Amino acid sequence: MSIRLGYQIPNFTYPGVPDEDLFDTVIAQAREAEASGFDTVLVMDHFYQLPGIGAPENAMLESYTALGALATATSRVQLSTLVTGNTYRNPALLAKCVTTLDVVSKGRAILGIGAGWFEREHHDLGFEFGTFGQRFERLEEALTIIEPMLRGEPATFEGKWYTARGAMNNPRVRPDIPIMLGGSGEQKTFRLAARFADHMNIICDVEQLPHKVAVLRQRCEEIGRDPATLATSFLVMGMVGETEQEVKELAGTIPEDRRNRAFLGTAEQVAEQLQERVLGAGIDGICINLIRNGHRPGVVAAVGAALKPLVS
């Protein structure tokens, strides 16, 4: 499993599109991504829209329900969250959700997972947030249960946060389902990725990438793992305009806290930047979202055409 070119859909607010037609627009984006060379389609695992993208009351779909529907609307792309908030689901249930998605999609599911971070969602929906350290304790325990279940083995574990007693996971269509961690923590996330993951999606400012790649490789070597066996990707906010005028307009909409993760320009200009600054830093693949205009027919295809040669 590898994500070389992923298209993330983080925005479900489309001007002029009523809620009952919203998912048609999501399907159209996924199909356009599939047809234009993207190998993976991803959605966020959130219940409210994120700060910097939109208001919290804006539309947000539950991720695994949406992915299950996209599985029936596509035929080739891998399907994943970027990434699942571990705190939102019991780990054995999450393993079951991902395995069901794999069955529905005929073997195209990836488990993307992280510790969880959006405190307001936890507060409003009644999920325990806890401390930073507690969330990573929970993630480690969850992976201890989830990994064997995704490999077709019963999970038995008695921990501080979670318990499983011979938890089984059938039906299954693959011997194992890939695990992707998302984040940037060098001490906790990267160590867990080295132990449990097939893929690491690094989320950080682009200037930090060479250092993060070096530390991730070090974490693998510390436990005797070949770093080449842990694939990497980087999440990009794509502010891609079809014309120079649109590029200028998009420049004023980049969230302040995303300026070091956003790439601005035409599709060809953004491709050049990603070649140098992301792939040149030692990253294997790119995940891109097009928050402002990805719902507009033709935009995803244009970006796919520009980016596909970089990762082929």
Rank of each mutant, 00 (worst) to 15 (best):
Y162S: 07
R277P: 00
R261C: 07
R261P: 04
E249D: 15
M180S: 12
E222R: 15
G285R: 04
L274I: 05
L230Q: 09
T189V: 12
V240Y: 00
G280R: 03
L279F: 05
R165H: 10
G252H: 09
R258F: 06
M200P: 11
T243C: 08
N289K: 02
I288R: 02
C220F: 09
L230D: 03
N289W: 03
T232M: 06
N293V: 01
G238P: 03
L235V: 02
C287L: 13
G159E: 02
R217H: 12
K248H: 10
C220R: 13
T189R: 12
R258T: 10
F190P: 15
P171R: 08
V236M: 04
I179H: 01
E244G: 07
V206T: 08
M237W: 12
T163G: 13
A193K: 06
E222S: 15
V215E: 10
H199T: 05
A197I: 14
N169P: 07
G298T: 01
P227Q: 07
A228C: 09
C287M: 15
P297L: 09
A251M: 11
R277W: 01
Q245G: 08
V270L: 03
G294L: 01
Q187V: 13
I203R: 01
L192H: 11
V240N: 00
K248Y: 05
S233K: 07
A164V: 14
D284G: 14
F196P: 12
R259K: 13
R191T: 15
G298W: 05
F234A: 04
I223N: 12
V303F: 00
H211L: 15
A302S: 13
A267P: 12
E276T: 13
R174N: 14
T189I: 13
Q208T: 11
G241W: 04
M237G: 09
P210A: 10
V300A: 02
I179S: 11
A231L: 08
F190G: 10
D198C: 13
F196W: 10
I223M: 14
A262N: 01
R174L: 06
P178T: 07
G280D: 07
M180W: 07
G238I: 06
C220D: 07
P175M: 14
G182Y: 08
V247K: 09
E272I: 10
Y162M: 14
R172E: 05
P255V: 04
A267Y: 07
A301R: 03
A301K: 05
N170S: 12
N289R: 00
L235R: 01
A228R: 15
L250I: 00
R165V: 11
K212I: 13
A302D: 06
N201P: 02
A231Q: 15
Q208A: 14
M239C: 13
N170C: 09
M237H: 15
I288A: 02
V206W: 11
V213W: 04
E221L: 15
E246M: 09
L181W: 09
Q187F: 14
F190A: 06
G252F: 00
F263Y: 02
E207S: 09
Y162N: 08
